[in-house]
Structures are given as structure tokens and as C-alpha cells.
């Protein structure tokens, strides 16, 4: 067993455990902290798989920007202690049964496909930022432009939806008299 494989297993296990903790937490901030751990562990996995650029992005964008954004929103919502109580009341053991069975079946199928389908081979060589950059601004240029547009749309959408008007209720969420 070489070092890389050891690192892969360790960080993979960390990622799985951290994710399990994320999905079982009642407190949002705790869940987010475990999420960061999970992301960081995955970044290590990326690195040992030979994708250093992706690993860096994982740390910067996922663990950094996106999680921070979610934390901001949680802070803006100003949730009290009773939010945690509520979460506890929602997450009774019985709700785990159905989704758990479904996902177990799905997982079993994926395992079957992976193990019986001849997915073999090793990651042999690292692909650095240079190649990624060449590809991005070469054959994938149009896709880059499109993702730029997507981000633009996201910005405008977030601005439009996030405006808090005093009286006027957004028409998608308008209260109907029932």
C-alpha cells in the first residue's frame, strides 16, 4: 500500500464521516462546519487523484465562498434556539426508513455496476493547471462564456428575488386568501 492510497482512504473516510455528521446535525452552523471539513477532505482526495487545480478551487470556492454565503444568510435569518428544537422534532427516526431503503438499493446498484462493469485502471499522472487552462480557453471557450452568462443571470436573479419590499409581495409568493 503506497502513501497515496493511504492518504486517499484516510481523507475519503474523513469526508464520509463528516458528511454523515452534516446530515445528522440539528444545528445549522455545526452542520456547515462539518461540511467544510468534508470539502477540505475531498480537496485532498482531488489532489491525490492528480487534480491540484480542482483541489484548490474546491477549497477556495466551495469551502470558502459558497459556505460563507450560506453562513451569511443564516446570520441574516437570525434563527433562535427554537429552530434547533424544530429540527429535532422533524428528524424523527421514522423519516429515515423510506429514504434509507431507497438509497441503499441505489447504492447497491451503483456498487454492482462499478464492480462488475470493468471500471479498472489507475490514475497515473497529475493534470496540472496549465492543461486545464489551455482546454478552458481552447475547445471549451463557448462553455466558459455560457457559464459567465449563467453567473450573470444568477446575480440578477438573486438581486431581484432578494429585494425586500415593504408592502408588495412577490407575485410568485403572493398570499392568497384561503
Amino acid at each position: 500500500m503506497n502513501t497515496d492510497l493511504l492518504i486517499f482512504f484516510t481523507s475519503g473516510a474523513v469526508a464520509i464521516v463528516a458528511t454523515i455528521l452534516v446530515i445528522t446535525q440539528y444545528n445549522m452552523i455545526h452542520a456547515l462546519l462539518y461540511l467544510i471539513v468534508s470539502f477540505l477532505a475531498l480537496a485532498v482526495v482531488f489532489y491525490v487523484l492528480g487534480a491540484p487545480f480542482a483541489a484548490a478551487l474546491e477549497v477556495i470556492v466551495y469551502a470558502g465562498a459558497i459556505v460563507v454565503l450560506i453562513i451569511f444568510v443564516i446570520m441574516m435569518l437570525n434563527l433562535k434556539k427554537d429552530a434547533e428544537e424544530q429540527e429535532k422534532s422533524w428528524l424523527t427516526p421514522s423519516v429515515w426508513i423510506g429514504p434509507g431503503i431507497l438509497c441503499a438499493i441505489l447504492m447497491a446498484e451503483i456498487l454492482y455496476v462499478l464492480l462488475a462493469g470493468g471500471f479498472e485502471g489507475n490514475a497515473t499522472q497529475a493534470v496540472g493547471a496549465r492543461e486545464v487552462g489551455r482546454s478552458l480557453y481552447g475547445p471549451y471557450l463557448i462553455a466558459v462564456e455560457l457559464s459567465g452568462l449563467l453567473l450573470m443571470a444568477g446575480t440578477i436573479g438573486a438581486y431581484h428575488l432578494g429585494r425586500q419590499r415593504r408592502k408588495v409581495i412577490h407575485r410568485f409568493l403572493e398570499m392568497t386568501d384561503e
Binding site: 458528511t19 446530515i23 468534508s38 475531498l42 491525490v48 429515515w96 438509497c103 462499478l114 490514475a123 497515473t124
Partner: peptide
């Protein structure tokens, strides 16, 4: 370096995906 069998990576991806999915369903 880099002698990681890819099915291990894919299985890890699958496990994480399932965890996320369970969470979406139960929350």
C-alpha cells in the same frame, strides 16, 4: 505516485451522493 484504482474514487463519490440524497429526502 498515483496508483489509486478509480473504482475506489467512484465508490466514494457514490457514497457521498447517497448521503446527500438521503438528506434531501429527510429534511
Amino acid at each position: 505516485m498515483n496508483a489509486i484504482p478509480i473504482e475506489y474514487g467512484l465508490i466514494l463519490a457514490g457514497i457521498l451522493f447517497m448521503l446527500g440524497m438521503v438528506s434531501v429526502l429527510i429534511r
